[in-house]
C-alpha cells in the first residue's frame, strides 16, 4: 500500500506541474495569437486547465467539496467562450 500511495503522490505532483505549464504555454499563445480566434481558443484552454487544477487539488486533499467549484468553472467557461465568439461574429451578444 505504501508503494501505491507513493506513486499517487508522484502522479499528483506531475499533474500539478503539467497543468501549470499548460497555463503558462496557453498564456503565451494568448499574448502572441495573431487572430481573435486564437485568443478565444487560448482563453478556453486556460479555463479548462484551471478546471483540471481544481480537480487535482480535490484529489490531493481527498475531499469532495471541489465538485461544485469545477462544475461552475466549466459552465462559466463555456458561456464566456460562446459570448466572446458571438461578439466578434455579430458585434453584439444578445440581439
Amino acid at each position: 500500500m505504501t508503494n501505491a500511495l507513493g506513486l499517487m503522490d508522484i502522479a499528483v505532483v506531475v499533474a500539478f506541474v503539467t497543468l501549470a505549464a499548460g497555463q503558462l504555454l496557453s498564456m503565451v499563445r494568448l499574448v502572441l495569437g495573431p487572430t481573435p480566434g486564437d485568443r478565444i481558443l487560448a482563453l478556453d484552454t486556460m479555463v479548462i486547465n484551471a478546471l483540471g487544477l481544481v480537480v487535482v487539488l480535490g484529489i490531493h486533499q481527498g475531499v469532495q467539496i471541489y465538485f461544485e467549484v469545477s462544475l461552475l468553472i466549466a459552465m462559466l467557461g463555456f458561456v464566456s467562450t460562446v459570448a466572446l465568439a458571438r461578439f466578434i461574429l455579430r458585434g453584439d451578444i444578445i440581439e
Binding site: 506513486l7 499517487m8 506531475v14 503539467t18 505549464a21 499548460g22 504555454l25 496557453s26 503565451v28
Partner: peptide, 20 residues
Amino acid sequence: AALCLFVGSGFILVGVIGLL
C-alpha cells in the same frame, strides 16, 4: 488513479504544445 493522472497529464501537455 495514478495511471489515469499520468495519461491525462500527458494528453494535456501534448494538446497545449500543439496549441503553441
